[in-house]
């Protein structure tokens, strides 16, 4: 086992996912299967190979720093589950 049920719970916390005991059990088994499969990569010696971060090697892409029209507060908040005035409202953050 590469990943214990306890570690699965910790990863879920990092990902901000609540998981049920059933999901924890299922994910532990499935993630272990997948990670075991991925271990295949260790057959390859990649010493000195530059990691590929981009498919076509584009470098920084700049444009002129001009002010253009933005969407605006009203439209931005239109999709919010709880938008009030100019703000997104959320449950309390601090005690």
């Amino acid at each position: 086992m590469k990943l214990t049920a306890q570690e699965v719970e910790y990863v879920a916390h990092l990902a901000r996912l609540e998981i049920t005991p059933q999901e924890k059990e299922k994910f532990t088994a499935q993630l272990n299967d997948i990670l075991l499969y991925i271990d295949k990569l260790n057959e390859l010696d990649t010493k000195g190979v530059e990691p590929m971060s981009h498919a076509i090697g584009v470098t920084n892409s700049f444009r002129e720093d001009n002010v253009v029209e933005s969407i605006g507060t009203e439209k931005t908040l239109a999709n919010a589950p709880d938008g009030r005035g100019e703000f997104f409202r959320v449950p309390k953050v601090i005690e």
Binding site: V11, A15, L17, I19, F27, L31, V90, P91, K92, V93
Partner: peptide, 27 residues
Amino acid sequence: ELLDMYKKTRMQGFGAEVKRRIMIGTY
């Protein structure tokens, strides 16, 4: 509470395959 809201929203909002991939990627 906020943290609880994040976790419950994502628990109820995402399906199993999406959660599985988020978990692999986060790990």
